[in-house]
């Protein structure tokens, strides 16, 4: 049964599209919300946490409509994608404050806050002011305030951004554990492999629209079916292109404005990269630079939106 239900949700900022006509059902376990910067992930998160009113459509979490219902916050924990804090409080004071707002008496709130800090590896920073926290520590603190009241639903907006490797590892493991325990976790990211570490279920968002929904491996296969572009820099551009034309994996070759640059389009980048070094040695063609142009997620999304 779906815990998060989204129906035809749209939001505009004056003339700028936030999200458009999104419909999705999210079930218990971890679901990744994948999309490049500006895709509408944070807007969707804000809509789902009732911080923003949708222009059209409807969303509910655990059967509770998300706009203007304080009961929602009993069951939802949110880790925002922003850097704002009460800088003068210590991390422990901040978490104690948040716990007291959840109805805990002072002593219990202090204990819960301390446990929360220890859980995220912040026990050494208990009495340190948030203003003096590093980016990674602030990220952990944001995560800690989201899970403080042990909510059954977690919405995490880029929770690993800026975290140190150890912190990332701990958080990824924690998120997986939440999923195993039957919590519903929606975690956004613009990095594919980051999401893959946590879940195989993803929603792909771009330009405010839901492009794909399903297994991350299916999406990857879809991506791998798309041609890749490789830019090569060589003083012997013409000679190199004559040889590359004979490669079965090469689809097209185009010359760039720079007289030493050409771009190769290939469907099998692995095979292409295996063959290239031998060619360089055999034919004595010096190559000064190679760059793949499609490794970032945005270009993957471009492939997905192509008709």
């Amino acid at each position: 049964m779906a815990v998060i239900e989204i129906q035809n949700l749209s939001k505009w900022y004056d003339m700028v599209l936030g999200v458009s006509d999104i419909t999705a059902r999210i079930e218990p376990g971890v679901t990744g919300l994948l999309g490049p910067n500006g895709a509408g992930k944070s807007t969707l998160m804000k809509l789902l946490t009732g911080q923003m009113k949708a222009d059209t459509g409807h969303a509910a979490i655990g059967g509770i409509p998300v706009w203007n219902r304080i009961a929602l916050y009993e069951i939802v924990g949110f880790c925002p994608d922003m850097e704002k804090f009460y800088e003068r409080l210590t991390g422990h004071e901040f978490l104690t404050y948040m716990a007291r707002l959840h109805g805990l008496p002072k002593k219990a709130a202090r204990e819960t806050a301390f446990e929360g800090m220890c859980r995220l590896g912040l026990e050494d920073a208990v009495d340190k002011r948030i203003g003096a926290y590093s980016k990674g520590m602030r990220q952990r603190l944001k995560f800690a305030q989201a899970i403080l009241h042990d909510p059954p639903v977690l919405l995490l907006d880029e929770p690993l951004q800026g975290m140190d490797p150890l912190g990332r590892m701990q958080c990824v493991e924690m998120i997986r554990e939440f999923g195993r325990r039957g919590k519903t976790v929606l975690v956004s990211s613009h990095i594919l492999h980051e999401v893959e570490e946590m879940t195989h279920r993803i929603l792909v968002l771009n330009h405010g629209q839901l492009l794909a929904e399903g297994d991350v491996h299916e999406i990857r296969e879809l991506i791998e079916e798309q041609p890749r572009h490789v830019r090569i820099q060589t003083p012997k551009r013409r000679e190199l292109s004559n040889i590359l034309v004979a490669f079965p994996e090469v689809q097209t070759i185009s010359f760039e404005e720079d007289p030493e640059e050409l771009t190769v389009q290939t469907l099998s980048p692995d095979a292409f990269f295996q063959r290239l070094p031998a060619l360089v040695l055999e034919q004595h063609i010096p190559i000064t630079q190679i760059a793949t142009l499609d490794d970032n997620l945005e270009s993957v999304f471009e492939y997905l939106v192509k008709p």
């Binding site: 911080q51 304080i70 009961a71 929602l72 916050y73 948040m98 707002l101």
Partner: peptide, 9 residues
């Protein structure tokens, strides 16, 4: 920081 208050019951 309003969000931290807004997201509490």
């Amino acid at each position: 920081t309003l969000m931290f208050l807004r997201l509490r019951p």
